[in-house]
Write a protein that binds this DNA or RNA. Structure first.
Lengths: 126, 126
DNA sequence: ATAGTTGTATTATATCATATATAACAAACA
DNA sequence: TGTTTGTTATATATGATATAATACAACTAT
């Protein structure tokens, strides 16, 4: 899987790495138990510091997406759950997005359409 | 409208102010042409600096939600549009959320259900 | 055993975002 | 003439972000 980093973005580099891997997981480009590049290797490819990659990996680990072993490196977890913490975070973020969309005149149907299209877009790669 | 600020949150104070006002607009607690508290007054109420409130207001102005006059203070704009910039930002943010939800096993229907419930929650206050 | 790789930890440094404090300004109003 | 409005300016402090350079323990391959 290939990561694209925008150094000019206001989004922190470690956050971009985090987000891209989430997208890769959803698209099926990364599969359970698959091994990820070593922090030094990915740092070289992206021209960022080793610790920046490690920070992105660590964030994904605290969220349960990745597992680290000192022997085997970092790999994708076997399965993920929609735990309470995730559901609460999802609700909060959707709350703000739904509010902004409603203010600007988008209907529920239009919002649902966007989500459906994006969701199906992920299923294409499986 | 009453704003609630969490000084211990990792979300910047000006961002919290911004977000709460968006939610207030969606819930009908703030209406078009309505005047908002002066930056100094709101800063006093929230125990934050005047410039922090101004930063939140300015962000909302660049997004088209508010209008500032040196005579009349800051008020809600007359109407909002779903312009290209907003739609693009909405798509990007929903993209990541949809990806995370899919990974964790949520179906399209479950996502749509959350949005519908939240959307209707805003309509209650109108 | 030796060398290399893994994630991790440490220390130091630089830069930017965030937030505050204080003051001043132009424009409008009572 | 004061007062209020948003705005601008300067200075300061703190935390997040990012880099650099080392070092370490644990494991793998030769």
């Amino acid at each position: 899987m290939r990561l694209r980093i925008d150094a000019a973005s206001t989004v922190p580099l470690y956050q971009q790495i985090h987000d891209q891997i989430i997208l890769g997981l959803a698209a099926g480009e990364l599969r359970p138990d698959e091994t990820l590049p070593a922090v030094r290797q990915l740092a070289d490819e992206l021209n960022v510091n080793m610790l920046t990659v490690a920070k992105g990996y660590n964030l994904l680990k605290t969220e349960g997406y990745l597992i680290s072993d000192r022997r085997q490196g970092t790999r994708v977890a076997a399965d993920f759950q929609a735990d309470k913490l995730f559901m609460q975070s999802l609700q909060e973020q959707l709350h703000l997005l739904t509010a902004a969309a409603k203010i600007r005149g988008l209907s529920v149907a239009e919002l649902q359409q966007i989500i459906t299209t994006q969701y199906q877009g992920f299923e294409q790669g499986e």
